[in-house]
């Protein structure tokens, strides 16, 4: 009996010290999970999730502090990917949060006063222009985050839905009549 207890105690002592050493020796810096999550996020930096940008939201999710259904630009597929990565069940968007069709911002040339406020608001440097000069949004770089709408003092920016053209047209899922889809769109 005593011998059994001694054996257990020695094993505990040895393994405990090995683990204590290993914990410090193999400590990993940073959070690789947050990087993986950030790769899934659409990088619109729109802040609709309640975090100042995609990276902070990714870090919050990695820590388990934020839900996966707070990124409308990522859409349902985005939620699905996050759910797959994090091993949780996908859930629908909450009340009042819904993905919108992909849009880009457009500056009304006649109204823009060149105040540069939108340039400062744009999180992805998609607006070019100088003070007191007309500003232009580079449509290819615009993520459609709408952050430039609010700061504009003259409301000269509006969102334009990106329409389907021969360029960005995609083959439809088969078995669904293509013409019907087109009419619906």
């Amino acid at each position: 009996m005593i011998s059994a207890i001694i054996v257990m105690a020695v094993i505990g002592l040895v393994l405990g010290s090995v683990l204590g050493w290993a914990e410090l020796f193999y400590r990993v810096a940073g959070d690789p999970l947050a990087d993986k999550i950030n790769d899934i996020l659409p990088q619109t930096q729109c802040g609709q999730c309640g975090f100042p940008g995609c990276r902070p939201y990714a870090e919050a999710m990695a820590k388990g502090e934020a839900d996966i259904n707070r990124c409308p630009p990522g859409g349902e597929p985005g939620i699905q990917r996050l759910a797959d990565l994090l091993g949780v069940e996908a859930k629908p968007f909450g009340e009042g949060v819904a993905p919108k069709p992909k849009s880009v911002a457009l500056i009304d040339e006649n109204t823009c006063i060149g105040c540069t406020l939108c340039i400062q608001a744009c999180p992805v440097d998609a607006i070019v222009g100088a003070s007191k000069q007309l500003h232009v949004i580079v449509a290819d770089l615009c993520t459609g985050c709408e952050l430039c709408l609010a700061p504009c003092p003259v409301d000269c920016i509006h969102m334009e839905v990106v329409h389907e053209t021969v360029n960005n047209w995609k083959w439809r899922y088969p078995l669904i009549p293509i013409h019907q889809q087109r009419e619906a769109a």
Partner: peptide
Amino acid sequence: NEFSHNIKLTSLSLFGFSVVGAVLLA
């Protein structure tokens, strides 16, 4: 110092639980 402290902590706690468990089983 950090290392030795951590090793002391982990080995002693595992030691403690082992002894308690072994005694209970015995």
